[in-house]
Design a protein around this nucleic acid. Structure first.
Length: 361
DNA sequence: TAGGCCATCTGGTCCT
DNA sequence: AGGACCAGATGGCCTA
């Protein structure tokens, strides 16, 4: 939007500037040369990236490449100011006339460059896909955007680092808060929903079995953690939404406060909790509606869930916290995508496995 | 329809 | 010289 605005406005500005420069008899060109800038550009070729496209067109016609051949002397220089006889010769690439052969070669080279660029971007995207798969929340159908993937990955790394540094388990609220720092509202809801559902699922198993969930691989599993079955009836925990009321929960804003010695303990006694209706949540994808045939890798996931809405039950109970991103603008937390095929990766990513153990010991 | 996201094209720059 | 990388421009698609 902004760039479009610029691209519409700036050419006019440049035209005005160029007109003004013409009126001032080419002093700007001289000034450029004094500043050791090659002055081989025409007035429509100010050093402004927003004009790239039109410049690209114009320069394509006068491609400077190639060795060849017959018309070395047929160079035409721009920025010709006839009154500049005392000025030094202009520097920069000399333009040559485009023969048909050179045009053809230029096209071929450009096509090759385009193909390379395409494959490069494809490689980049596949790397990004791999990153999506190891980041805490993954959905095949509701992919995180590139920027959100990178942000979440960064937060994830920071969170793991903090945990290793402190040797302390965060509560789920703090953990979610760390992961969602700087994410957009929809992504925040997605991630928070994933993590909270995961926690709840563990707890459900744990409670129904009457036994503590134990994750032997966790280096922290020797320390009992305070998430208990009673949490399911906690005023901050929203069974149906899979969300914790992070607005009413009091915690520090940064990692320092989030991981203060002794940790923060969620305030479950907030009065403004009202149990919402529960949307269908499937453990291992078993309970509801539309299911995609699980792929081989999906079958390795511990959890797969269908989730039809987070933070939708009550405006005041949505997972709206932290800086809002570009999409949601922070004003509305209800724009949550349907969570089909949302997966957690603790089976894949060992650190995440450990983190899950935090919440379920 | 606006805004976000994405893929692609393109020219510039740097490096080998 | 050619390839990698980068950033701007552009148009398509999708969603609220």
């Amino acid at each position: 939007m902004l760039s479009r605005l610029f691209s519409e406005v700036l050419p006019d500005v440049h035209r005005l500037a160029a007109d003004w420069a013409d009126d001032n008899d080419g002093d700007d060109c001289k000034a450029k040369e004094d500043g050791h800038e090659p002055c081989h550009l025409g007035e429509d070729e100010l050093d402004e990236p927003l004009e790239g496209s039109s410049r690209a067109e114009s320069e394509m016609a006068g491609d400077d490449d190639d060795d060849d051949d017959e018309d070395d002397d047929a160079e035409e220089e721009e920025c010709e100011d006839e009154n500049g006889e005392d000025k030094p010769k202009k520097r920069g690439p000399k333009k040559r006339k485009m023969t048909a052969a050179r045009v053809e070669r230029s096209k071929v080279r450009r096509m090759k460059a385009n193909a390379r660029e395409r494959t490069r971007m494809h490689d980049l995207n596949s790397a990004l896909d791999n990153l999506r798969k190891v980041v805490p929340c993954y959905s095949k159908t509701q992919k995180l955007s590139k920027i959100e993937t990178l942000r979440l990955a960064k937060n994830y790394i920071l969170a793991l680092g903090e945990i290793l540094r402190n040797g302390k388990r965060p509560d789920v609220v703090t953990y979610v808060q760390m992961l969602c720092k700087g994410l957009s509202q929809p992504t925040t809801n997605l991630v928070a929903g994933c993590l909270q559902l995961n926690t709840r699922n563990f707890l459900t198993e744990q409670c129904s079995d009457g036994a503590r969930f134990h994750m032997p691989s966790s280096p922290f599993s020797v320390h009992p953690y305070s998430y208990r079955c009673s949490r399911l009836s906690s005023p901050h925990y929203q069974p149906g939404t899979g969300a914790i009321n992070l607005r009413t929960h009091s915690y520090g804003s940064g990692y320092e406060s989030a991981y203060a010695p002794g940790g923060t303990s969620p305030d479950y006694s907030s009065p403004d909790y009202e149990a919402p209706n529960s949307p269908p949540v499937c453990l291992n994808g078993g309970l509801s509606g539309r299911q995609q045939e699980p792929s081989e890798t999906d079958r390795n996931y511990h959890y797969s869930m269908h989730y039809s809405g987070l933070a939708t039950s009550r405006p005041g109970h949505s997972l709206s916290f932290g800086p809002s991103g570009t999409r949601g603008g922070g004003a509305h937390s209800e724009n949550v995508p349907p969570f089909h095929d949302v997966h957690l990766h603790h089976d894949r990513a060992p650190p995440y496995e450990d983190l899950n153990a935090f919440f379920n010991n």
